[in-house]
Design a binder for these strands. Structure first.
Lengths: 156, 156
DNA sequence: AGGCATTCGTTGGTGGCGCCAACGTCGGCG
DNA sequence: CGCCGACGTTGGCGCCACCAACGAATGCCT
């Protein structure tokens, strides 16, 4: 649906370049994960569990950046598939403790492989140095805006 | 909702960096345009009209990259606000010819100003050279994936 | 000890964006 | 003439980000 060249008014906007390339990246990721019946949220949650160990849904949300209401839905799916276990915290009955099951660990590994392939696909036209540069620039932008968010949340 | 640091498994994925920064960019754009009751699609369409002149909805979709079904909705809003005019093409009665009204031109200018401010906000941590580098890298990625899309559409 | 604010999980809903299927209308070409 | 295709439109889907509200439970503060 976008055969002709976009107007310069778009091409010259960094925000447009970002959201467009991100859209392509998102499609690659969705397709890659879709092939093993997974979605972005699943990877974020399982990766967080793997790296930080068992956690409540709230801390899981904070680590993964997934909204708590979406964490509920994603964990419903993951638990139904046996990839996570949801058991009540005896020390605080408001909380659930989420753990990664062996099946979940296997699934996570499969996701990682898919995502590695996606990165290759995504970054194909760039050489190693350029990839590093891109990563650095994006990381700096991200850090900046994450800080801004934190400040405005604590101030407001 | 994302207070703690994301896991390294995310930070190391270029696709994640892209979609995250794009999400921030998208929010800035949405807020900026929202202040003047505009949305992303509106800008894309008006900018296309401004740069390429009056066009049918189909060619407008091709230029702006907005899906035709979404073009309909956006043009309903823009026409209702008097920013565009939709008149039947006498030469081809399937087509509508969309034109930019004076009011639309004014609106476009206001959007441009907002978006310029957003770019500043978005890229604040980068100096001029770094901004140029980022633009170049993203443009190359975008061109690559756009070509891939075209090829697969004409092949399949 | 009592009362209040806060946290946690959950439900249901919103909006943007990208996209697909279907349909009636109309034009162009073999 | 008949068929294929383009055009505009409607209605719907999926993913992601996010918000409001609620009951249950906890912790703090007095």
């Amino acid at each position: 649906m976008s055969d002709d060249a976009p107007p310069e008014a778009l091409r010259s906007l960094a925000s447009w370049l970002l959201t467009q390339t991100a859209a392509h990246a998102h499609r690659l990721v969705t397709d890659g994960l879709g092939a093993i019946a997974a979605r972005g949220h699943h990877y974020r949650l399982l990766a967080s569990l793997d790296e930080f160990g068992p956690a409540s849904q709230a801390t899981l949300a904070r680590h993964s950046g997934v909204h708590t209401s979406d964490v509920v839905a994603a964990l419903n799916e993951l638990s139904a598939a046996g990839h996570t276990a949801r058991l009540p915290d005896p020390a605080d009955r408001r909380r659930n403790i989420i753990t990664l099951t062996p099946s979940g660990r296997t699934h996570l590994t499969a996701m990682r492989e898919r995502l590695q392939a996606v990165q290759e696909d995504l970054l194909r036209p760039l050489d190693a140095t350029e990839r590093a540069t891109l990563t650095t620039l994006l990381t700096r932008l991200l850090a900046h805006h994450e800080n801004r968010e934190r400040e405005s949340r604590h101030a407001g």
